[in-house]
Simulated scan of single mutants.
Amino acid sequence: MPSLALPQRTAADLRRINADFYESLWAGSRLVDPRRFNTWPMVRDLAMALPRRLEVAPGLRPRLPLDGTYFVDLSPSATKGLRAHGASAMRGSLSALPCPTAGFDLICALDILEHLPDDERALQELSRVAAPDARMLLSVPLHPEAWTDFDDFVGHARRYEPVMLVRRLAAHGWTIEQSAVYGMQANSSRLLAIGQWYLTHHRERALWWYNHVLMPLGLRLQKPLQWRAGMGSTQGVDEVVLLCRRT
């Protein structure tokens, strides 16, 4: 069941764009404590019950507790920063996780699946490392018709149709238990255009402003997540975070 993608760029193009963008981002970032994110109330309760934990591609914005979680990220700056704070982190790809089969009870993969040229392989890997009855926190952008220049710039390969996403997860043995509207993307197309211009022409300055001004402001302004059963209504929803259960 293929996802609906926008194939203007090759897989190699996507890998290069993502590697360049996120390595530049994490190289100038400081680690943000997981307790500062609006995912923490859900994560805290899950982590207490599920001690074998994996988070994939957290960068320096991990959502699972640093203590006791195994982190995998492609970025050298991200893995170095995580280790500097006492976390167990290894470089690796979601397409070939350096992890044991059925080794984890709680998996977190936020804002990553949409970047990968082969998301089917990624879903296979997430399912492989999940123990029976495991939980997974997953976030993805929705609605291909809502594609903007922002998606191109940050290296997205696709947006997901909600119905197809539910079916694809089910095909890999996952049931969506709860969901919530998620993400911090600006609604103003003009603001996005200005941000992309600065990132293109003055990347170092733009990333400084993001890391030191916009990100802290976004953390202060974020609202508590409103969880609802199943996928829920996705009308007008740009991005969703899902709590899935391995069945």
Rank of each mutant, 00 (worst) to 15 (best):
M231C: 11
L25I: 02
R16Y: 10
W197S: 13
H212P: 01
Y22F: 15
V240K: 10
P141S: 05
P141W: 07
M231G: 04
A84W: 02
A96W: 09
T10K: 02
I194V: 15
L64P: 06
L25Q: 09
D119K: 07
D118L: 07
A122M: 03
W208S: 12
A109L: 12
E125Y: 05
L219P: 02
L126K: 03
L217E: 12
V213D: 11
A134M: 10
W26C: 01
Q226K: 12
A78N: 06
H143N: 05
P34R: 04
T148W: 09
E120A: 14
L191H: 12
M136G: 00
V72F: 10
S88L: 11
G173T: 09
W197P: 01
R190Q: 14
L242G: 08
R158G: 02
R9T: 05
S75H: 08
M215I: 10
L192K: 14
G59W: 03
A122W: 04
C108H: 07
Q196L: 14
S24Y: 06
H172N: 05
Y70H: 13
D105P: 08
L106E: 09
N38K: 11
F104Y: 15
D152I: 01
P162I: 05
R63V: 13
L192M: 14
A47N: 07
L110Y: 03
A57V: 03
A109G: 08
E55C: 00
